[in-house]
Design a protein around this nucleic acid. Sequence first.
DNA 1: TTGAAAGCGCTAACAT
DNA 2: ATGTTAGCGCTTTCAA
Lengths: 344, 344
Amino acid sequence: MSERVTIEDVAALARVSIKTVSRVINEEPNVSPLTRDKVEKAIARLKFRPSRAAKSLASRKAFTVGLLYDNPCADYVANVQAGVLDECEARGYDLIVHPRSSPGYELAREVISLYQQGRFDGVILTPPLCDNQTILAALSDEGMPTTLIAPGTPVAGFPSVITDDDRASFDMTKYLLSLGHRRIAFVSGHPAHIAVQRRTTGFMRALLESGLTASAEMIVPGFNSFACGVNAGNRLLLQENPPTAIFAANDEMAAGVLSVAHHRGLNVPGDLSVVGFDDIPIATQSWPPLTTIVQPIKQMAKRATSLLLDIVSGNTPSLQDVVEEIPSSLVHRKSTAQPPIVRT
Amino acid sequence: MSERVTIEDVAALARVSIKTVSRVINEEPNVSPLTRDKVEKAIARLKFRPSRAAKSLASRKAFTVGLLYDNPCADYVANVQAGVLDECEARGYDLIVHPRSSPGYELAREVISLYQQGRFDGVILTPPLCDNQTILAALSDEGMPTTLIAPGTPVAGFPSVITDDDRASFDMTKYLLSLGHRRIAFVSGHPAHIAVQRRTTGFMRALLESGLTASAEMIVPGFNSFACGVNAGNRLLLQENPPTAIFAANDEMAAGVLSVAHHRGLNVPGDLSVVGFDDIPIATQSWPPLTTIVQPIKQMAKRATSLLLDIVSGNTPSLQDVVEEIPSSLVHRKSTAQPPIVRT
DNA sequence: TTGAAAGCGCTAACAT
DNA sequence: ATGTTAGCGCTTTCAA
């Protein structure tokens, strides 16, 4: 490997001081067009690339953000990463990912250790980590810049990006109702994922508003996984008076319900309508493709990153308690239809 | 934020020189147990964390590896990342991910630029990037340490980790044959992903070895996606004399075939056996769950990382042309059975 | 086994 | 608009 080209080489070739070169590469003002041009030519000729380590050391910034998650759904994670990377690349930052399965306290300690080593300037948390008070408190004590994606409830001091789970869920239920369904079941999501809990609320609210009540046997608990959907589906469909529509709090569980329906010889949507939430790939890959709610995860992640970078780059008035909402939307596919004629 | 604790603070408290502290934190030899103990106590007391930027600048290493991929399958990517991270964390390295959809030349330029900035010490490539000669040549010219996960063919100068696609595919076909199937169709994978092509070879080989020949209409091309599986399934099942078993070169396509089978009212595995390759989540989540081949992606990624770190940390004799193979294995689930009785 | 000195390649703070 | 001078917090090299 040849010797590294440094800012001094560029300065010498352009016959200016290193500070001027620094101004050019950082796009600072107060450089005459002529000088700028000379410097840029020298940079190009020498193929100069400023050393990230030197820049970090001198400026006391890592130009890197950390992404923390503890989510088994690869697709969710991929979307979050894509959104974060979009913003990072646009602003010259790097991303370090930190999936975690260790208990809360350990995670906080590890992350703080990395932060103290200057390995990143701040972090982005996704559910369920962003609902973990222990972790939040630890990061806050450390003064670590942090933003949250889809926290269950807004947390003072942590800028957040959320979506309208409750309203989307409400709309979906209303849609099912408008199709003529009256016995609608709901498979609720993971209790630790509070945002998902709000989907239950929206469901209830829509029922109530239509003068219906959710009977206890029509609400079954799940934990977000496909297997839970299978269990819930079996439980629901085995009842004497089974539902004509099943709304699962996420697509994985909806896919589980679908699989049970096939297994039992039910026609979807003829005999049973099934809907989900999230719009992960399985929603289009199952048969029939699922009517569901598109959660704009990638945009949420991008926005959360943008907020974080605003904070760490310091060009921002207090955005301590910013909570931005990006709407989810309903997408109609083939898993929904009118309920079958009631046989009395 | 309080002032940073530096190596000097530790040295002062322990009454040694900073070089000695450096020796302790880097676990270098030639430190007396007594001194080491003093230093360790001081580090603990002060909660000292060595600055990564300073370390990088002084040692001219980033302690970071880059992971390059251009693969739409979230699960594949998640597994690769998990394997790479495992190894990175164990050895104190960071990971920077670089998903890419830009044309080959651009990718190489971008990656080289990052490398020249010292943002990582080397990179790991996954298919189809690791089969791209343009990219490989560019990285090689730059002298950038690189290892490959599942390249189509070994490339001189690039240590690689592969699996035995051909043999696994051969075994799977033999299994189908042993069940009694004689009309077995194959949905081939993306032409740019050479390792996947070898799955076709294994299939053919097994057929030949059993004295059968693969008729042209029994081999249909696909491009790895669910939608391709749907197309292939339709094409295959519409034939006058349809296959009794369909082997898809990956699980996503197998799931597509499954969906078509359901749609057409076929019973799987009663009327039709379907098998895939990879063992992604959809393989267990489809109905019935797929008999498939488990590709040890995570271990492959871990090993590829280990090779790369050996190279960049320089404690290795030439491993220029190392090619390690990690075996894939067949997993039996519910999508396979004997063929239906032939109605003449 | 230990230490002193000289950088690594930038930015910050202050001149001019 | 441009330059000068100190570091940033480590590792490296060489000496003791």
